[in-house]
Amino acid sequence: MLPLNGIPTPEDIAAVMPTEERLSKGPVAITECFQNIPCDPCYHSCKRGAIKAFTDINERPQIDFDKCNGCGSCMSRCPGLAIFVVDATYSDSEALVKIPYEFLPLPRVNQIVTAVNRAGEELGNAKVVKVQNTKAQDKTALVWLAVPKNLMMESRHFLVKEVR
């Protein structure tokens, strides 16, 4: 449970998940933001209006999954690094997970890293497909990982295998 150990429960996750049908249509953002805190940059970051306007700054973000195209521009604006993009249509066997990442060195494209879950437990290999690190992202890189489809809702971070 989040307040006890920092790990969201399956029920927490289920409550913010897009439907299977939406996932089958392509990339979509998932806001793993489970606490009402005074914060709203995600709303201001979305150019498609896919994040519902906040009437109170303490509200949690609500995504209109039909408007969201999974571009990920909200991901690098979230101070909590709590937004992920999942693309279940990446290939027959693999899904794409975009992860906000603020560690150095950044991984290289095609590098094999170890995907980890929300508890920090290792899940297995994942391949880096793309690393986005533009000036607008201001040092919060987005790393695109290809993971087996059954791990797309588990993979939320990764470990770079080499020691620095």
Binding site: L2, P3, L4, N5, G6, I7, P8, E32, C33, F34, Q35, I37, C78, P79, G80, L81, A82, F103, V116, N117, R118, A119, G120, R156, H157, L159
Partner: peptide, 23 residues
């Protein structure tokens, strides 16, 4: 204390990076 005082998103960020939190 019985609960994490930090914003939970901060807590989640360090936990998935491998740091356990013991309340």
């Amino acid at each position: 204390g019985p609960k994490i005082g930090a914003y939970w998103v901060h807590a989640a960020k360090v936990v998935r990076a491998g740091v356990p939190i013991f309340t």
